[in-house]
């Protein structure tokens, strides 16, 4: 069977589908001071997965606000800098109207994913962190 670390080199998704892969990628991102990008990506996925039952509404609002506050509000943060102004406006607007939708972070997540695919992921595959592990 193909060792996991070779699978990680196939695509970002194969890397993010493996606990050890995530752990190593996060370690690398931390060294580069951009682990928030990965946390944000998973926070968006987790938010989308929240069940739409009653009683969860309050939790959703709280969580959406927490994600916004931690990753988007500070314009100098690594995540915020990679997200388009229009996307940030859309999220802020949704929050202010309390229009909480499971897909409200999808566009922002896609923008961060593109950034990882084009930048940090290829760098990771060439990094000492990955090569030493492999």
């Amino acid at each position: 069977p193909t060792p996991p670390y070779l699978k990680w080199a196939e695509s970002l998704h194969s890397l993010l589908d493996d606990q050890d892969g995530i752990h190593l990628f996060r370690k690398f991102l931390k060294q580069e001071d951009c682990a928030d990008m990965l946390d944000f990506w998973f926070a968006c996925s987790g938010f989308r997965k929240l069940e739409a039952n009653e009683g969860n509404e309050e939790k959703k609002v709280k969580l959406a606000k927490a994600i916004y506050k931690k990753f988007i509000l500070d314009n100098n943060g690594i995540v915020s800098r990679q997200i388009k102004p229009a996307t940030k406006c859309f999220i802020k607007d949704s929050l202010m109207r309390l229009h909480i939708d499971p897909a409200m972070f999808d566009q922002a997540q896609a923008e961060i994913q593109t950034m990882m695919e084009e930048n940090t992921y290829p760098l990771f595959l060439k990094s000492d962190t990955y090569l030493e592990y492999a």
């Binding site: 995530i22 987790g46 929240l50 969580l63 927490a66």
Partner: peptide
Amino acid sequence: IDSEDDLLQECISSAMPKKK
């Protein structure tokens, strides 16, 4: 009440793949 950080951590963990 849950702190925002706990809520975020729980959300992030829920999206991670389970151990195979």
